[in-house]
Design a protein around this nucleic acid. Sequence first.
RNA 1: CGGGGCGUAGCGUAGUCCGGUAUCGCGCCACGUUUGGGACGUGGAGGCCGUCAGUUCGAAUCUGGCCGCCCCGACCA
Length: 492
Amino acid sequence: MSKVITPQQQDYSKWYNDIVIQADMADHSAVRGCMVIKPTGYAIWEKMQQTLDKMFKDTGHVNAYFPLFIPKSLFEAEEKNAEGFAKECAVVTHYRLKTDPQNPGKLIVDPEAKLEEELIVRPTSEAIIWNTYKGWIESYRDLPLLINQWANVVRWEMRTRLFLRTAEFLWQEGHTAHATKDEAIAETRQMLEVYADFAENWMAMPVIKGVKTANERFAGADDTYTIEALMQDGKALQAGTSHFLGQNFAKAFDVKFANKEGKLDYVWATSWGVSTRLMGALIMSHSDNMGLVIPPKLAPTQVVIVPIYKGEEGLAKVSEVANVIKQKLQQKNISVKYDNRDSQRPGFKFAEHELKGIPIRIAIGERDLENGTIEIARRDLLSKQVIKIEEVENYVSTLLEDIQTNLFNKALERRNNLTTKVNTYEEFKKVLDEKTGFVMAHWDGTPETEEKIKQETKATIRCIPLNNEQEEGVCIYSGKPSTQRVVFARAY
RNA sequence: CGGGGCGUAGCGUAGUCCGGUAUCGCGCCACGUUUGGGACGUGGAGGCCGUCAGUUCGAAUCUGGCCGCCCCGACCA
């Protein structure tokens, strides 16, 4: 195989690409900006989906599916939303191809088959969903409406990066309708908590929960809540968003309900989503120069067993024990793969499983059979230990938890080290350039100042943290008074 | 869309200035020896050199057009 991964320290961006491609997660496709998610990568996405899906259902949501295409007239109904996404929409204008009379064997778009109304390939589904909800909601008895959809969306990005920004991506989008403002806000916040829970306890990725500034708000939202993570290179990544949409979509699509008093009112809305971008976040939170590191709770394969043997008989002997171990672990709900391929040698397999990030590797050789032992290696620390064979179930269960905790703690420590309070603009710029990471600074609260700082430093306000500590200070840019620090960073 | 780079076997490349149908490594196939950290030997398969046109006896190589991809920026989850 002889795969070489560019070291992080040398070129982080190249390292990231190498990991994605060499760990076999995804590849560039024949379509500009669109990737192929390969089985190894897709399996991780499926684990994310399963986990999130359960969390959504546990909080009362159900799944449904809405069309890929949105008629232009619906798409433009909510003005801010339409305007926000307009410049990155794929548009279907025709419904038929025909043979090119000038060029046999080639196809052209049939000019006769022009659509009367163009169809927009959804960049997000609020428009089509709210148009549908209009017919579903009449009374307060129909509320709340708590629906999620797993789907693909298309945003015609100018520049793309595997998982982090692709023209087509997979995501889930929750769209809920409520009778009251408070209830909708509570839903928005609840889903933010769900995302934070998932990020921290499954992805082992610490996040800051907060509110976006007006500049960074979702187009069509009254408030956008976000979880912000910090990657290994000190750049921030928005990992999930939850929007309080107010009555904007209800008004745009005329979705009214009769309340208990019999009066008509517009419903209150939320939407929230996470995407395959989380795959990128996962990679940039834990992986190293040897390859991918997957937290145990999201690893499609948690344990791989590699036999070391001489000859067929040797393999048979080792397999006997390996299969017992496999079974015992599976009974504890641990996913195990027994890698008994005879076509590769152990060293090759070790390297390959490290590259693919499997949390625990068990090696069993004939030497172990004699001693009643096995060798256990953990991916996060790349350390090995020999244990008694009968200890395997308990040892592995505990180790999986340890690895999960260790990854989170390591990521948390890194984030804490890369979070800096600054009080002057000079300091601010210096930290951004030399130390990177989250920079906590006072801001006067105006979009103008935010925009100027962005233009001058490329740093954006990632969020205003929830339950933020209140503290007197002055804006690092304008010198005007401020009551709290906000989180700045350069971001993906 | 601006700036830079690149298109030669599955992947990475040499050859391009100075025209003569192609180099090396990895991978792949077969057989044998191997197997506690990316094995070794022997033999073998695989390329109309991105594409179209031009110059020429002859083009990967020279000329022109087109297409595609990657990286940096603007836009953005």
